[in-house]
Design a protein around this nucleic acid. Structure first.
Lengths: 208, 208
DNA sequence: CCTTTTAATGAACACGATGTTGTGTAATCA
DNA sequence: TGATTACACAACATCGTGTTCATTAAAAGG
């Protein structure tokens, strides 16, 4: 049913469609794109589009799927390395390698990702990015945490942290990636480990 | 140009449109709604719709505007009270009143808001919710923080915290509002003040 | 290299949603 | 009550959709 097609014509056509799609997403946003637009711009027959995709939603989904799968593959890989090497060690001031990998991948696909995670982006895709982060955070909390010290429900805590990470990613994209993946991962590590109040310099006002 | 219309017919028609719109958003989602659908369901003439709105995007925008403005009004009010009463006091373990107000307002408009902030929601609206939170957080940090203790850039910190809050709101909506606004605000206060790592019970593993 | 297979083209089609217009009706306001 | 105007109804051109068919061209395989 879903056998891999190797015909060069198919690969060429699909690539051209996806390229043009990514381009038009930047230019006019997803909703404004019509199949006519896309196929004219890609210089292929309109009917040809329907040989490969059901409609533009199908195209979006399949494009996102590819990004998502690679994102998950890379971060899973990095996460397994850490789990094996430093299973019991929690470094308060070191960035998580899988977060670095995530930023690196986003950087590679900047043009398209910026649109998907931007203000006119796709909520469903943002949920999937959060899921990638959530999975690892859940792991981390379940392995390293002391349940008796868990002050809030786990699912809310995970929602908090993964959304925070996504928010910082979005800010980073909006600022035109003004820092390296390493710097970003370290920054996230600091806030998450020391807490927003502490890194903001708020805690002292109370302690003194 | 934008004078207030008081004609009952206008008010009735617009209300019916907005009601039906909110209803259809829940049932089939924004993209699947057609003006035909909407006007048939609202039992008004299709042409009448165009006397009030340019298209469905205009309708969405204006509906969101109303939610946004009320959201901002309520939270601004609560924020000013705090700024006046306890300007210098930072309570580590007390919920922020404006966050309580925010949750209360979301609760009142559950049906519509749940769609807008859900997985098939509107990214632009989510940005606006974050902006409401951001504005206050920025205030808080600027007033109470010690700049010399600021460990990360302010904009990234604000992005982190406001996105985290939005994420928790979304989780709360998905869980069918399983807690009270007060409980949610307290929960958020705990995580933000003590830090994700601490409330997860992670910090002890390092300190011991 | 030649044959077979099949992807892509171009044109045509019915269909549905859009946004506009003109006329008549009925509700609202002053 | 009389003037105003929001609304209903119907018709219209326009556009994008998704499908079909015969035709052309390119790739795969022997």
């Amino acid at each position: 049913m879903d056998e891999k097609k190797t015909d060069r014509r198919i690969l060429r056509t699909r690539q051209k469609i996806k390229e043009t799609f990514a381009h038009l997403m930047e230019v006019k946003g997803f909703e404004a794109i019509t199949i006519r637009d896309l196929t004219e711009c890609a210089d292929i027959n309109r009917g040809t589009f329907y040989l490969h995709y059901l409609d533009k939603y199908d195209l979006l989904e399949k494009s996102e799927d590819e990004l998502f799968e690679e994102m998950e593959r890379l971060t899973d890989e990095a996460w397994e390395d850490v789990s094996r090497d430093q299973f019991e060690k929690v470094n308060m001031n070191e960035p998580l390698p899988f977060i670095i990998k995530l930023f690196e991948y986003l950087e590679e696909n900047y043009d398209f990702i910026k649109v998907l995670l931007g203000p006119n982006g796709n909520s469903a895709f943002q949920v999937r990015v959060k899921e990638v982060i959530q999975k690892k955070m859940l792991d981390k909390f379940l392995i390293h945490s002391h349940p008796e010290h868990m002050l809030v429900p786990l699912d809310y805590l995970v929602a908090y942290v993964s959304s925070a990470h996504l928010g910082v990613i979005q800010q980073w994209l909006e600022r035109g990636m003004d820092r390296t993946p390493q710097e970003m991962a370290l920054l996230l590590s600091k806030i998450s480990n020391f807490g927003p109040a502490y890194v903001a310099g708020l805690k002292e006002t109370v302690e003194e």
